Computed example of a mutant assay.
Amino acid sequence: MTTSTWTRHHILSLADFVPEEYNTVLQTAASFREVLSRRVKKVPTLQGQVVANLFFESSTRTRSSFELAAKRLSADTINFAPSTSSLTKGETILDTAKTYLAMGADMMVIRHKEAGVPQAIAQEMDRLGVRVGILNAGDGQHEHPSQGLLDLFTICSVLNATNPNLELLADKKIAIVGDILHSRVARSNIWSLTASGAEVHLAAPPTLVPQLFTHFGTNRPGKLFLHWEIEPALQDADFVMTLRLQKERMTQHLLPSLREYHQRYGITRDRLKLCKPGVKILHPGPANRGVEISSDLMDDPELSLIPQQVTNGVAVRMALLYLMGSGKA
């Protein structure tokens, strides 16, 4: 593994990632995937460093994945729970971050329901002149970089298991279907997939995929297309990513009913007949079975990449922590 091309101190967004950075993450993750296949799944790479997981919002996959990734790299971990923290006594988020800084944190993994919180903490660390890396684990409706990278790694690994790289997607069509409006995952995936030269097709009701997304496709090697019907997005698609309906973020009545949504936009076996033979399905989770995707497809090992996404998440997050922390190791 090499970090010679890696100069990024914080990972807050994929909007300004360049192809060399994507390929560095993919190749490093491939190395760590091999480590995770061994009997002893641990390396001393970040021994002595402290990773603080500051999750101000509920999470199962991302939080557990980052904690396991840090431990596989031999780092010490601190986990933050807002309900039992001094936030309940009026402490500010920045003061909370400074508390973990004083405890010796080398990296902080931040998730928050409001966009911009990881960026604000990164700016405060930079203002203080400390070498603490901030990794955005999902902020509001902004971005979720590590999920976008693990999805990219999963897709590229299907195309070339031994050498996943960005160039593999240059002629591929990828459909993203669902609640794109509220999805930070969709935003990160749009940035990464259009950087590869892939055709990315968004499909959802007009209330869930507004025209504002067209600006994502400008000045990128790939192309972005918006559809308010699912059929043109699925036609000849190589990969289909379906997104959870984020009902907790919907402040307006954006859908007639979940049943009608499934009838018009749900991923089913019949709809997959529009795609290329060998099409694969992704879902960042958690999924509403029978709404975004039929339950049988989720559990079909020939079609579903969902278990691989979860497994690959550990390897990709190991790669990100390693790349961020290697300058201190």
Rank of each mutant, 00 (worst) to 15 (best):
T162W: 06
G138T: 06
T99L: 10
E143W: 00
K98Q: 14
N136S: 02
A120T: 05
M108Q: 06
N79K: 05
H112P: 02
R127Q: 15
D126K: 14
N160S: 14
G104T: 12
C156A: 15
L101S: 08
P82G: 03
L152T: 01
L128K: 09
G104K: 12
G116T: 00
S58E: 07
S146L: 07
K89H: 06
Q141W: 04
T77V: 15
G148N: 03
S146C: 12
S83L: 07
H144G: 02
V132M: 05
I134Y: 13
L128T: 02
A69P: 14
T88W: 08
T84H: 04
M108S: 06
A105I: 13
R131K: 15
L73M: 09
E124F: 12
M107G: 10
T92K: 03
K113Q: 13
V130M: 09
E124P: 08
F80T: 05
D76N: 14
H144I: 13
G148T: 02
H142P: 02
A137C: 06
A70D: 14
K89L: 03
P82T: 01
G140T: 04
T84D: 04
A97D: 15
S85V: 09
N163A: 06
A97N: 14
V109D: 09
A81D: 10
G116Y: 08
M103Y: 14
F153M: 09
I121W: 00
H144T: 08
G90K: 03
S157D: 04
L68I: 15
S86M: 11
F153H: 06
M107V: 13
H142S: 09
L68G: 10
S65D: 11
A81N: 07
N136Q: 02
V109R: 12
Q141N: 11
L152K: 05
M125D: 03
D95E: 15
T77S: 12
K89C: 02
I121T: 01
A105M: 08
S74W: 07
A122T: 11
S74N: 07
S157E: 05
L159G: 12
L135Y: 02
T77G: 07
L87D: 02
A161F: 13
M125C: 11
L135P: 01
V158A: 13
A69M: 11
S58G: 10
F153T: 10
G140D: 03
E124A: 14
R131E: 15
P145C: 08
A70V: 11
D106H: 11
E91H: 07
N136Y: 01
K71F: 13
D76I: 06
S157Q: 11
D151Y: 01
P118F: 03
G148R: 00
L135W: 02
E124D: 15
S64W: 10
Q119G: 00
L149S: 06
D76H: 12
V117Q: 01
L135S: 08
N160M: 04
G133P: 09
A97P: 13
M108E: 04
L101W: 08
D106G: 10
F80M: 06
M107N: 12
E57C: 03
S74V: 08
R131C: 11
M107F: 10
I134F: 12
K89G: 01
A161Q: 13
A102W: 09
